[in-house]
């Protein structure tokens, strides 16, 4: 079996007396989509925050590409190749769609200290940004103000910005949130092909999308992973059914 790209080793995080993450060990292998599901308050966002570096675990460690990154900042982890999308779109709303994608390309280039030439005329950055926008289907909306985009289009732009980083692994926090069924299907189709480029750690509430996409699923309840397995294994798991999926699954 190939070595995982991203791995957490028993990460535990307390908020006061509350154990938001309880010895969570998960891994993300090349070419796969690994979905994290769980009821509200199960600690999914806390887990993402620790993987991406905005929150330090109380104990345990995070490994990325075989290297311990637990002490690294969000910035350093992005530069190392961790591409994150936000649950609530964190886009520059006053800027154009293209400018948002350019920001990703600029970050990936690591050369923001240029004060004179126009960013939009930098052909290398622009090519990278336009390419990412085309891949998510926003090529016709490039020159719109981001605030004018529909909710679904913003979700697409979130993914496009992550694409410009050409990451080694994606961490996506509910990319389908608030999408209609049409938009959700389209994004599902897109993510399906994306796993070839880089594996995806996918936190998602949309069960149709999860069951359609995931190679493996981990179920998080009260900060603890109660099961990890293939879609069929998870569907058949008695404990998961009781805790989460309920009688209709």
């Amino acid at each position: 079996m190939t070595d995982p790209i991203l791995k957490t080793h028993e990460i535990t995080r307390f908020f006061g007396a509350l154990k938001a993450s309880d010895a969570v060990s998960i891994d993300l292998r090349p070419g796969e989509i690994h979905a994290i599901i769980g009821p509200n308050g199960a600690g999914k966002s806390t887990l993402i925050a620790q993987i991406c570096g905005s929150l330090a675990p109380t104990s345990g460690r995070v490994e990325f590409q075989g290297r311990d990154v637990t002490g690294l900042s969000t910035r350093a982890r992005s530069r190392a190749g961790l591409g994150r999308t936000f649950q609530i779109s964190a886009l520059a709303m006053e800027d154009s769609v293209l400018q948002n994608a350019l920001l990703g390309a600029l970050g990936a280039s690591g050369r923001p200290w240029r004060f004179f030439g126009p960013a939009l005329k930098d052909s290398a950055l622009r090519e990278q940004a336009e390419d990412a926008l085309t891949r998510v289907g926003l090529q016709d909306d490039m020159h719109k103000r981001t605030a004018e985009l529909s909710h679904g289009q913003r979700r697409q732009l979130e993914v496009a910005v992550a694409l410009t980083l050409q990451p080694k692994a994606f961490v996506m926090d509910e990319p389908m949130a608030g999408l209609g069924s049409g938009g959700s299907k389209r994004l599902t189709g897109f993510l399906d092909g994306l796993r070839e480029q880089a594996p995806i750690l996918l936190v998602e509430h949309d069960m149709d999308a999860v069951f359609a996409l995931a190679d493996r699923i981990s179920v998080l309840v009260y900060g603890k992973v109660i099961a990890t397995g293939t879609v069929d294994e998870i569907r058949a798991n008695k404990e998961v059914q009781d805790a989460y999926l309920g009688e209709d699954a």
Binding site: C52, S54, S73, T74, R75, S78, R79, R84, F86, A90, L91, A92, M93, E94, D95, Q99, N100, L103, G104, L106, G107, A108, G110, P112, V161, T164, L165
Partner: peptide
């Protein structure tokens, strides 16, 4: 411009 509007994003692109 982006740092003014959404610092979290700027950080996740590595700046």
């Amino acid at each position: 411009n982006a740092a003014r509007q959404t610092p979290a994003r700027v950080e996740t692109v590595g700046l």
